[in-house]
């Protein structure tokens, strides 16, 4: 091992140690607990013993959990899909040069400065049925006569409900700046010659987007989608703070379910099993991403 390598290892070591201690170890400890009994109310008395997949059977036998799994996927697909679509559109706009660009960029980036927990609290007030300024505005404009129950209406269209859409909107609002910055970096690395060549070939703006921009953004998009889907599967704070999973469990997601099992019902074994499902789903996305990347590299 030469000096350069030793230096590299020393530089990486702090991050590696922190990741091992705060990321990898808890992850394996949680997986370990998911195969054992671990009821906080009696673990001192009865201890913890191996039960195999029983905790997984138990959580999947709970219809709330199954509903939560479906909703987590739906939340993620909606939030990621809308965010990326809007991100692509807005990134194109702020990639152009025009007067007021700096102001527009600042406005678009503002939600990024608001931590998700604070954003949730602000939006709880903005979406409160009786106090919402949005409802007042809609009524004043004559668009509605009855207040919309943004976070409490339990009527559904399949698995979709107004509270679910409201939380998706807040997640998109808060997460969009990150996506735009990511995509903007990708857009700025696309050589202008490609667009000029496409123009010479007679391509219109949509054709340029489909045949030049998208293929060139593919590596960036792949990383972005992998990150967003993994983050989405484990998303917690907005659903937890804004609705706690209600009404009627319609906005519950797996991370909130796991938290409730552990910290409210003291069933750490079932919480660990629910977390295990999150880990497995995230792993599938991660493996898919790595496969897609290695396939591209081989080409």
């Amino acid at each position: 091992m030469n000096e350069k390598n030793i230096f590299c290892y020393i530089m990486v070591a702090p991050a590696l140690i922190i990741t091992m201690l705060l990321g990898i170890y808890p992850m394996f400890a949680s997986m370990f607990i998911s195969f054992r009994t671990y009821d906080l109310l009696n673990v001192q008395e009865r201890g913890s013993h191996w039960v195999g997949l029983r905790n997984y059977y138990t959580v999947f036998a709970d219809e709330r959990f199954v509903q939560t799994v479906i909703q987590t996927i739906l939340f993620t697909v909606l939030a990621v899909g809308i965010s990326v679509a809007m991100g692509l559109f807005l990134a194109q706009i702020i990639n152009a040069r025009f007067r007021g660009l700096a102001v527009l960029r600042t406005l678009i980036l503002v939600p990024w400065f608001v931590p998700p927990a604070i954003a949730s609290v602000i939006w709880i007030w903005l979406l409160n049925t009786d106090l919402s300024p949005i409802n007042s505005l809609l009524r004043d404009m004559g668009w509605t006569t009855r207040n919309i129950r943004f976070l409490t209406d339990s009527s559904t269209w399949g698995p979709i409900s107004i509270p679910m859409l409201a939380i998706v909107a807040v997640r998109v609002w808060n997460g969009l700046p990150f996506i735009i910055i990511f995509l903007l970096a990708g857009l700025q690395s696309v050589p202008k010659d490609y667009y000029e060549a496409a123009e010479i070939d007679g391509a219109n703006i949509v054709q340029k987007f489909i045949h030049v921009t998208l293929p060139m953004l593919k590596p960036v998009l792949l990383i972005l989608l992998a990150l967003l889907f993994m983050g989405g599967i484990g998303h917690f704070e907005m659903n937890f703070i804004m609705t706690g999973g209600g009404p009627r469990n319609l906005t519950n997601v797996m991370a909130v379910y796991a938290y409730n099992q552990g910290f409210l019902f003291f069933k750490f074994d079932q919480a660990a099993a629910a977390s295990g499902v999150i880990l497995m789903m995230s792993s599938v996305i991660c493996v898919f991403y790595m496969w897609a990347q290695s396939r591209d590299n081989l080409r």
């Binding site: 109310l41 709330r64 706690g244 999973g245 209600g246 009627r248 469990n249 519950n252 379910y257 409730n260 099992q261 409210l264 019902f265 003291f266």
Partner: peptide, 14 residues
Amino acid sequence: APAWSSIATPKPGA
């Protein structure tokens, strides 16, 4: 009862 806080938690599932 030790489980009272779990029984009376104001969350779905309790």
